[in-house]
Amino acid sequence: MTSRVFLISAAISEALREARFDDGSPVDTSGLRAARTAAEAGAVPAGGRLWLSPTVRCRQTAEALGLEGGTDVRELASLDVGRWRGATLAEVSAEEPEAVARWLADPASAPHDGESVRAFCDRVTERLDAAAGFEGRTVAVVEPEVVRALVVRVLGAPEPAFWRVDVPPLTVTELSGRAGRWNLRSGRPLV
């Protein structure tokens, strides 16, 4: 059985513009406008199931794209950065440079008392493996780090590659295949 999963990265938000660790901020005006433009242009992939990262930004992106009836999926939640949530990377780097360096170098490290990159990759990969049990298409509106984690795992890349994958807002990354054997088509912009 072959499944297709279309990962749509959420529209831009103030937190993303500021390189701030997710703090639940909504999509900004330009992000909503871009998502609506994509919907009007018919650029949004159709699917049988709609999964969402459980964030305000992903819910608003899905609505602006004209996608309805989505299910918040806990396994597709953002990377838990613990006590760094709401701070910018520059702020945390200034206050805890050794901790940030360790976190960026060691995928098993979680100096912020949250989740390690390795644990995060494991969590989102479990949901991808579950998608393999469904015939047809799944559309998932997710945070960029979810796309990064799945790209790393699908390609069998080492976990430090997580930091080398850029995922722009409102792009589609398509995975097709089955558990343990996925093909990747990345970075198609919606607008």
Rank of each mutant, 00 (worst) to 15 (best):
S13M: 03
S13N: 06
L16M: 11
L16H: 09
L16Q: 09
L16I: 14
R17W: 08
R17Y: 12
E18N: 13
A19R: 14
A19Q: 10
R20E: 00
R20M: 01
F21D: 00
D22W: 04
D22K: 03
D22T: 09
D23H: 04
G24T: 06
G24I: 08
G24V: 05
S25W: 05
P26S: 12
V27E: 08
V27W: 09
T29L: 10
T29A: 09
S30K: 15
S30C: 11
G31Y: 06
R33W: 12
R33V: 12
A34H: 03
R36P: 01
R36G: 12
T37D: 09
T37E: 08
A41K: 08
G42L: 06
A43S: 15
V44R: 06
P45R: 03
P45D: 07
P45K: 02
A46T: 14
G47F: 01
G47D: 02
G48T: 01
G48F: 00
G48W: 01
R49P: 03
L50G: 02
W51H: 08
W51F: 06
S53C: 08
V56C: 07
C58N: 13
Q60M: 11
Q60C: 11
T61F: 00
E63R: 13
L65R: 08
G66Y: 14
G66T: 15
L67C: 08
V73P: 00
R74A: 05
E75A: 15
L76W: 10
S78H: 10
S78T: 05
L79H: 07
L79I: 03
V81K: 01
R83T: 09
R85K: 09
G86L: 13
G86E: 09
G86I: 13
A87H: 11
A87K: 13
L89T: 11
E91H: 09
E91F: 08
V92P: 07
S93F: 06
S93Y: 13
A94T: 14
E95C: 10
E96N: 12
E96Y: 14
E96W: 13
P97M: 06
P97V: 02
V100A: 10
V100D: 09
R102I: 07
R102D: 14
R102A: 14
L104I: 06
D106T: 08
P107M: 08
P107W: 05
P107C: 03
A108L: 15
A108H: 09
S109N: 14
S109E: 11
P111A: 04
H112E: 15
H112A: 06
D113Q: 14
G114A: 06
E115T: 02
E115D: 11
E115N: 10
V117Y: 07
V117M: 06
R118C: 05
A119Y: 03
C121W: 04
C121H: 11
R123Y: 03
V124I: 10
E126I: 05
R127V: 04
R127W: 03
L128I: 02
L128Y: 00
A130I: 12
A132N: 11
A132E: 10
F134H: 15
G136Y: 01
G136Q: 03
R137G: 05
R137S: 13
T138I: 12
A140P: 00
V142G: 00
V142K: 02
V142Y: 04
P144F: 09
E145T: 10
E145Y: 15
V146S: 00
V146W: 02
V146H: 01
V147K: 03
R148I: 04
L150V: 00
L150K: 07
V151K: 06
R153C: 14
V154G: 08
L155T: 15
G156N: 12
